[in-house]
Amino acid sequence: MLFAVPAFAACTSPAAPEVVWRRCLLDGRDLTGVDLSRGHLRDSSLQRAKLAQAKMVGVDATDGRFLSADLTGADLTEAVLREADFTRAIMRGAVLVRADLRRARLFRADLTGADLTGADLTGADFSGAILDGARWTDGQRLCAAGSVGTCQ
């Protein structure tokens, strides 16, 4: 008797909605403006990757590594980013509406003008993060200029 085995995309699969890039090394990849909506990026490394203007709505990047990645203007609405590492990532103007950032590391990340409306920040590390003009989780408060590590 033959059993159907689920097909999993390889790390070499092209960027596309619902792509499966689990445990992939994608460091330095240029993914500017791509649509990775609902993609599976668990345990993947995208260090120094260019993800500016990328559409990553509903992506699951639990335990992902985005160190020094450029996520300028990326749409991470409802993304699951639990325990992801965004150390020194550029996230200017990123949309993180209702994103799950529990225990994420945003050490020295640049979140200038980012939208964190409804995001779950439980246990997230914002040490040294730049939050100038970021919209806070309540959707109302804008962080003051000079906000570092905490929304002033």
Score class of each variant (00 low, 15 high):
1 M>S: 14
3 F>R: 14
6 P>H: 05
7 A>P: 10
10 A>H: 09
11 C>Y: 06
13 S>G: 09
14 P>N: 07
15 A>F: 03
17 P>Q: 07
17 P>T: 12
19 V>W: 11
19 V>L: 10
24 C>I: 08
27 D>W: 15
27 D>K: 15
30 D>I: 12
34 V>T: 07
34 V>D: 05
34 V>Y: 08
35 D>L: 07
35 D>G: 05
39 G>Y: 04
41 L>F: 05
43 D>R: 14
47 Q>I: 10
48 R>A: 15
50 K>R: 15
51 L>P: 02
53 Q>H: 14
53 Q>F: 14
53 Q>S: 13
54 A>D: 01
54 A>L: 10
56 M>G: 01
57 V>P: 09
57 V>H: 15
58 G>L: 06
59 V>S: 09
62 T>F: 07
64 G>Y: 01
65 R>S: 12
67 L>N: 01
68 S>F: 13
69 A>F: 05
73 G>C: 10
74 A>I: 07
76 L>Q: 00
76 L>T: 01
82 R>T: 14
83 E>V: 11
86 F>R: 00
86 F>G: 01
87 T>Y: 03
88 R>C: 12
88 R>K: 14
91 M>Q: 08
93 G>R: 06
95 V>K: 12
95 V>E: 09
102 R>K: 14
102 R>A: 15
103 R>K: 12
113 G>K: 02
114 A>P: 09
114 A>E: 04
122 T>S: 13
125 D>A: 11
125 D>Q: 09
130 I>Y: 01
134 A>Y: 09
136 W>F: 04
136 W>K: 02
143 C>M: 06
143 C>G: 05
147 S>E: 07
150 T>I: 14
150 T>P: 04
152 Q>L: 14
152 Q>M: 13
